[in-house]
Design a protein around this nucleic acid. Structure first.
Lengths: 232, 232
DNA sequence: TGTGGTATGTTGGTATACCGTCTGACGGAA
DNA sequence: TTCCGTCAGACGGTATACCAACATACCACA
């Protein structure tokens, strides 16, 4: 009966225009369709998204709260830009939260979790092989999601995702780096192994190394970019 | 001249109606003026705030992103309610971030920072003596702000503040507890001392004790409340 | 070249209207 | 009395028109 009932259920898309517009805008910013610092003109967004100004404005408010968009009085919203200082802080916060999550996950991981984690790692390997940045992005996200979710750290996961979207540009650059292809994968495998062994200490340690490395690469890239900017 | 120029400057409140409405709504929720789970009817909020529906809706979107308000499709926004599970997670995240901030602060604290911290602690003592919950609230916030800011953890501070606003009801209950008056103050002093000594380890340790204690009290209160609910 | 005025575009904010959904009240049937 | 269907009103979701304040770019004039 329960089964029948759940099959009978009419699940209309419980999605509002606003939610769809939000998704689009968010991924557009993350994907770099809107450049950092670019102005977001309400009316032109209305045209591009095909929705009314009310919707656009509400979406912008939401993204503003997420830190993806900045608004100045009477100047309108712009895509948030990221200084190295901010990026540094974000990597540090991620370190705290991911370390804790990995340790917690390693503590409680059961067979099902481990299987799922291995699947995620397999997918990650495949994505590394293909080399498509977007695919890597998703696979990495998936891998961490398993860790956070199984550790019961949903709220922390949400925070980390939000932080990640703020440094998405950096993450893209980082993932595209050659050496990252090798070491990144090795680090992930290391984290995975530690969890499979139910070894919280090792898991925390691996996460720490992984993130420290990522931050260092990000810093180098950002530095190089700003140097190039100055030369110009 | 620079002085004169800066004095001449007309600094009009760069505040929009929306921002003011946002502040009001946020503090109304934190102060408990709107109960947890209560529906927020847009049109009645318009009357109460004296602004138009657009503004109200944008504010609600913002609060939704902050996690203070929840919306269901075609049901409208409600004040977010908090389960113990969520509260647990929030305390855990705070632990990670506050511990790191305190340690970082202890590492870099100079004379000026220390002086400011001591001032904050003095204010805290006074607030404890007065016993006004709201004053305690502000003083505690101020104390932690000094720590986070001087450690250069602005983003983490923003996150912590947001988390705190989500557990504001719990914090209110916790602060009102009798034993908290004593031990809370002792803990704060301990944290402060560790920073004055530039001892990161001790600072982290003190924060950990303080927060673990707070979480335990919160849990007890929440449990008692839900028990009382069931009896009813 | 610099100054001041002007035109244009954009935002912040408001009012209003319309539709679809939800909810609760009312009234009739079993 | 209880159950159930219907219906009206409340409310959210969306669209649109309008206005004032402001910012910016441009232009003409000294």
């Amino acid at each position: 009966m329960t089964q029948a009932a759940s099959n009978l259920r009419i699940d209309r898309p419980p999605q509002t225009l606003r939610e769809m517009a939000l998704e689009r805008m968010r991924s557009a910013i993350i994907a770099g369709y809107f450049k950092s610092g670019e102005r977001l003109v309400e009316r032109s967004l209305c045209d591009q998204l095909g929705v009314s100004r009310s919707v656009v404005r509400e979406v912008i408010r939401y993204l503003e709260a997420e830190g993806l968009v900045e608004s100045q009085h009477n100047k309108g919203p712009t895509v948030a830009s990221l200084s190295w200082e901010q990026a540094r802080q974000i990597y540090r916060i991620r370190l705290q939260l991911e370390r804790d999550a990995a340790a917690a996950c390693a503590e409680v991981a059961d067979a099902a979790t481990k299987a799922e984690l291995e699947r995620a790692l397999k997918a990650l390997e495949k994505a590394f092989a293909v080399g498509q940045t977007m695919g890597l992005f998703d696979a990495t996200t998936r891998f961490y999601e398993v860790i956070f979710r199984s550790a019961g750290h949903d709220i922390a996961w949400e925070i980390v995702q939000r932080l990640n979207s703020r440094i998405s540009r950096l993450r893209g650059l980082t993932l595209a780096t050659k050496d990252r292809h090798v070491s990144g994968h090795a680090r992930m495998a290391q984290i995975c192994q530690a969890i499979l062994d139910n070894d919280p200490e090792a898991a925390a340690q691996s996460v720490e190394e992984h993130l420290t490395e990522a931050a260092a690469i990000a810093r180098r890239l950002l530095q190089a970019e700003s140097d190039a900017e100055e030369e110009r």
